Simulated assay, not measured.
Amino acid sequence: MRVDLFDFELPPERIALRPVSPRDAARMLCVSGDGSMHDAQVLDLPQRLRAGDCLVFNDTKVIPAQLEGVRRTFKGDEARIGATLHKRIDLRRWQAFIRNAKRLRAGDRIEFPADVSAIAQERLEDGSFILAFEGEEPVELLLERAGQMPLPPYIAGKRPTDAQDRSDYQTMFAEKEGAVAAPTASLHFTPRLMAALAEAGIGHETLTLHVGAGTFLPVKADDTDTHKMHSEWGQIDAATAARLNALRAKGGRIIAVGTTSLRLLESAAGEDGLVQPFEGDTAIFITPGYRFKAIDGLMTNFHLPKSTLFMLVSALMGLETMQAAYAHAIAQGYRYYSYGDSSLLLP
């Protein structure tokens, strides 16, 4: 499909630079398969779902993966380098997107704050680099000292990262370190909302997908057939898969909270719709025409024009329905993107 079909005009003032407080007070646009729409709040979620339904959350934890440093060569040359870690390779090496990459060569040493340094080992085909962190301390400790929370470019370009983002850009389910972007649909959840959901008979499960920085990359291709997705590592254990399959067999609905949960569930599902245990990389790219197998609904924030995520929600609900929903949200003052409001999509 033509990528420009997924374009729309978004006023800059609709981009949320901070989350609402409390988190569950965010607005929520409910969209049904017949195209009808209702304005609600995230706090209304227990009334918008049914007893027996199950919400599936991503329990990945965002690491401070944004680094600013100086490249130094054996000749003494210097250049400012920005690095956003994207995907872990092993205990000491990460794939990273590099700002000012033209000034970086394989073998160069990058010095970051707090006595943290890395060697640029190799430039990959997509322009990213493999960085090998020096020393013996765990890389996680190095990042805690030298790194910043990797806010999306549409936020970081408007204001600097600060201490508040350390908590704001982390969900209440965050447990397993490895993400360089938050599963933002889950940012809306609070203990009081989870208690209300449980009282309404709505269950929840967790899986893990370490979200990569590739989620923010623009689609540069003119046609979706020629766009290449970056892979991300995920895991669904056998017990979780079995519980989800049993719940669905009894008539319950699986509602993915966030596109990351949805993409992993669909990656793990067979043609029969059963979720299988999964551990490994996924680069699934969902566009209109895709047949969903594992999920019955999606809770997600409002996405970028011409993004793979807007293509995904258009595949679930239909492009015309989502164009109308996004136009309604813009007209009604909904807040967009990672720190913005939410939508509940039930086809």
Rank of each mutant, 00 (worst) to 15 (best):
D4G: 04
L10P: 03
P11C: 09
E13W: 02
I15N: 04
S21D: 07
S21T: 07
P22F: 07
A25G: 05
R27G: 03
L29Q: 05
V31W: 05
M37F: 02
A40C: 10
L43E: 07
R48L: 14
R50I: 02
A51I: 06
D53T: 02
V56S: 07
V56L: 09
N58M: 11
N58V: 10
I63N: 04
A65I: 13
A65V: 12
G76Q: 03
Q95L: 12
A106C: 08
G107V: 13
I110F: 10
E122R: 15
R123S: 06
R123H: 05
G127M: 09
G127S: 06
G127A: 08
F133A: 15
L142P: 05
E144I: 09
Q148S: 08
M149Q: 08
P152L: 11
P153R: 05
Y169F: 08
T171A: 11
G178F: 12
V180Q: 02
A182T: 14
A182H: 09
P183I: 12
F189V: 09
P191C: 07
R192N: 02
R192C: 03
I202W: 13
G203F: 09
G203S: 14
H204M: 13
H204I: 04
L207C: 07
H210L: 15
H227M: 09
M229T: 09
E232W: 05
G234S: 11
Q235G: 01
I236V: 14
I255W: 01
S261Y: 00
E266Y: 02
A268R: 04
E271C: 04
G273K: 06
L274A: 15
Q276F: 00
P277H: 11
F278E: 08
T287I: 13
P288W: 06
P288M: 06
T300D: 08
V313S: 05
A315G: 09
L316N: 04
A325R: 01
Y336A: 04
Y336F: 15
Y337H: 03
Y339G: 00
G340M: 01
S342G: 14
S342D: 02
S342C: 12
L344S: 01
